[in-house]
Design a protein around this nucleic acid. Structure first.
Length: 332
DNA sequence: AACCAACGCAACCGCCCGAAA
DNA sequence: ATTTCGGGCGGTTGCGTTGGT
């Protein structure tokens, strides 16, 4: 079986050829610029074409987990937490599949969140995070409690714990109810969900950074733009390139800013910002005016700021979206 | 102020799979 | 049918940050 040099080669020469470790702002710019211009294609050729001394795999990960403009970022909401738990119960550690149901979130992000927070939270609630059933110790203590109270069910047997009382929302863990409806929404509606889903948290999750021309806009504009970037291979955006490398520097967070010119001749701006300490790069966008807002009427998601994910056909969402043409771009 | 442990997260590793040669 | 290659995925590592002492 073939092996990717990046991931498997252990020769010193091979390792010396590619850079490793944290990405520099310059590398991020190069990768972002390249992908924005050319779209996602053959990752193995990206480093060479983009002028990077990284392996293609590293470029791919950097794009998917960090540079992609449609990433939500920011902390997970309560509803997102619940959705992750529900999906994990269904899918197990299939993070990519879970991420596919959560636009704007990456598998890596969800995986990290699960391992660092949700797992512990479930354990603290007496739930075994791998089975989503009460932990053995919890069953034992419950059994003891029932025995002492004299209200033991089923002759004192505690088989699966399904009937045990538990200090969590039982319906979540013990009912085998379907998580998502089987209905499918019209494509336009799904696009709105997609847009708002991406955009809801995109509105400057980093309040210390000012994004002129962006923060005042409806989120779906950003979303539509982001979707177009990702969809460029399919013709959503035929050609997008950086045209103005006249960066501006400030003393604080904004280190670079660039113009992004669409093939139709209207400009958006993207800028890279490094958070305090220079450790984290944020990709920021100033959106082109030509992108029409698709959610003047709030979408279901927008209306439900409480994000009732269970109301939507999330299991089929990603597939449905893949077939969309993102007409918002073609309107221009 | 200095030290240390815990935590969070970006990045890497290694394996698997499907497509192409 | 077999080999090679590229991409995707889940698991793991390591570093920077944060909070407590």
């Amino acid at each position: 079986m073939g092996r990717n040099l990046c991931s498997t080669s252990t020769t010193t020469a091979a390792r010396q050829r590619v850079r490793r470790g944290l990405w520099s702002p310059d590398e991020d710019e190069k990768l972002f610029s390249y992908i924005t211009r050319n779209g996602v294609g053959c990752w193995s050729s990206v480093p060479k074409l983009a002028g990077l001394q990284r392996c293609g795999k590293s470029c791919r990960l950097r794009w998917i987990n960090y540079l992609r403009p449609d990433l939500k970022r920011g902390s997970f909401s309560q509803k997102e937490e619940e959705l992750i738990v529900s999906l994990h119960e269904l899918l197990g550690n299939r993070w990519a599949q879970i991420a596919a149901q959560m636009p704007g979130r990456t598998d890596n992000e969800i995986k990290n969140f699960w391992n660092s927070c949700l797992k512990k939270k479930l354990i603290s609630q007496g739930i075994d995070p791998s089975t989503h059933k009460p932990a053995a110790s919890e069953i034992q203590s419950k059994k003891r409690a029932q025995e002492t109270s004299g209200s033991v069910k089923n002759g004192g047997e505690v088989s699966t714990g399904d009937e045990a009382k538990f200090p969590v929302d039982e319906s979540r863990y013990y009912e085998s109810k379907p998580l998502f409806g089987a209905s499918s929404l019209p494509a336009t509606t799904q696009f709105e969900i997609f847009g708002v889903g991406y955009g809801s948290n995109v509105i400057n999750p980093f309040p210390h950074v000012t994004r002129p021309g962006f923060d005042s806009r409806p989120p779906s504009q950003f979303s539509a733009y982001a979707a177009g970037l990702l969809n460029s291979e399919r013709g959503g955006v035929r050609e997008t390139h950086f045209s103005d490398m006249s960066g501006s520097r400030s003393t604080s967070n904004i280190s670079h800013s660039y113009g992004v010119t669409q093939s139709i001749g209207q400009a958006a701006a993207a800028s890279f910002s490094w958070a305090e300490g220079g450790k984290k790069l944020e990709t920021l966008f100033q959106l082109p005016d030509f992108i029409k807002s698709q959610d003047q009427d709030p979408s279901p998601w927008a209306q439900n700021s409480s994000d009732d994910f269970n109301s939507y056909p999330a299991l089929s969402l990603s597939e449905d979206l893949s077939g969309l043409d993102f007409e918002v771009f073609q309107e221009t």
